[in-house]
């Protein structure tokens, strides 16, 4: 039976290796057909900002990889509202992540779910496995 896996992302990208490591684990884990969701809280919400251009810092940008998550059936992406607000961000500052529903002729659907801290707490409570990065 598929277990519910949640990956919690709490760190900004590029300054530390956590964001990239989390993505790698998510992509590898996606091969095991589990029920995967991602949560972005705290500085983790910065991972999803639009317009990341890493040319100047000589690092590979992994921003486009988030756009591929839908292909990996990772389409429950929770973003905590309070974390966005504390940082002066709105959903418009984030990449528009979608997934294609094969059963509905590949209709594009939103992957990001904006949730309050207490809503996220309920989602978290419902998981079988939680991994934090």
């Amino acid at each position: 039976m598929a277990k519910k896996f949640m990956y919690i992302n709490r760190k900004a990208p590029y300054g530390t290796i956590y964001a990239l490591e989390s993505l790698e684990v998510v992509l590898i884990g996606a091969a095991f057909d589990q029920d995967v969701s991602l949560a972005f809280i705290g500085d983790g919400v910065y991972q999803l900002t639009k317009g990341q251009n890493t040319k100047g810092i000589g690092q590979k940008s992994f921003s486009p990889v988030y756009m591929a998550l839908g292909d990996y059936d990772v389409n429950k992406i929770y973003v905590e509202k309070e974390s966005l607000e504390e940082r002066g961000l709105t959903l418009d500052d984030l990449q528009h992540l979608v997934w294609e529903d094969e059963d509905e002729d590949y209709a594009e659907k939103d992957s990001i779910r904006l949730v309050s801290r207490s809503e996220l707490s309920d989602v978290l409570d419902d998981q079988d496995v939680v991994l934090s990065f």
């Binding site: 996606a30 486009p64 756009m67 591929a68 990996y72 094969e102």
Partner: peptide, 15 residues
């Protein structure tokens, strides 16, 4: 080119 990763076989098959 678009996503900066080589897709997993499952993703490739679907696509």
């Amino acid at each position: 080119e678009e996503y900066q990763i080589a897709p997993a076989v499952r993703v490739l098959t679907k696509a």
